Amino acid sequence: MTNRIHRRTLLTLAALTLLGTGGCATKALMDKATKTEYRRYEETVSQVLVTADGKRLAVLGPKYHYIFDVPEGLVQLLDSPLHRKMSARFDVFNVKANGDVEGPFALILEQASQEDRLAAKAFGFTDLSTTRAVRWFALQGSRYSAAKFSMPAGTRPLNQPYRVEVREALPNGAREALVVMTPLTVAADGALILLAIPLIPLALVVMRDLQTLPIGF
């Protein structure tokens, strides 16, 4: 009788141990499945364009297209007399698991006179110094695959390659976040079209590479 009770106790303890181990393993698997990992890559931008209605901004690379809503005030600023004295830069693009992307965009006014700085302040520039003014915009949009897209012949790229760092969320160990095909098309005359609206180069400002920016910018 005593041996039988002892054996039952051992079996019960063994079963509880297995259940505990299984629970830990299941939790570990669940944690791994729900953990979001990240990868970083560098995008070489060949074109920065805006729709003719001023509502969408397209940043084009060889593998991906990034389409953003144009932030409030950006078009008005580019149409202002200050635009000839401005350069621009993109900061890190953050791509979410669903393909949404966001990132800061800055317009920089260099060698600004006092009159320029007063005008810049009226346009919302906040980083004002004796020679420079900066205004940041928050870009939000989506990333698309450019795998089956070919740039039309004769399209003029930027004056020099422009590089943007991208941080991409990789859910559940996936190789990349959700990507759908680009909505850009090419018209019969070679013009780039986004959702039936022509795209025009954002040539009003000089794009600045991250590697060319001074430390502390």
Rank of each mutant, 00 (worst) to 15 (best):
N3R: 14
V180E: 14
V95K: 12
M1F: 11
K32E: 14
L13C: 09
G22C: 09
L77Y: 03
V206M: 13
N98D: 15
F217N: 04
S145W: 11
A191I: 04
Y66H: 01
L107C: 07
P104V: 01
T131R: 12
L13D: 06
L29D: 05
L109P: 10
A191N: 11
A15N: 07
V48M: 09
D189H: 13
N3Y: 14
E102W: 10
P183R: 10
V45P: 01
A119Q: 14
F68L: 02
A174F: 01
N94R: 07
E43N: 02
L195I: 04
R117N: 02
M181A: 13
E110A: 09
E176K: 01
E37M: 05
G103E: 08
A174Y: 01
R4F: 07
V164Q: 00
D79N: 15
L195V: 07
G141T: 05
D79T: 08
Y64G: 00
E110R: 11
L78K: 02
A14L: 15
F68Y: 15
L178R: 09
K148Y: 10
E43D: 13
G61T: 08
V50P: 01
V166M: 09
L13G: 05
A191H: 07
Y144G: 00
D91N: 09
R156A: 12
V101I: 12
L82Q: 03
T17L: 14
V70L: 12
L82G: 04
L10Q: 12
A28R: 15
V59Q: 00
N159Q: 13
S142D: 03
T36G: 02
A119H: 07
R156C: 03
V101Q: 00
I108M: 13
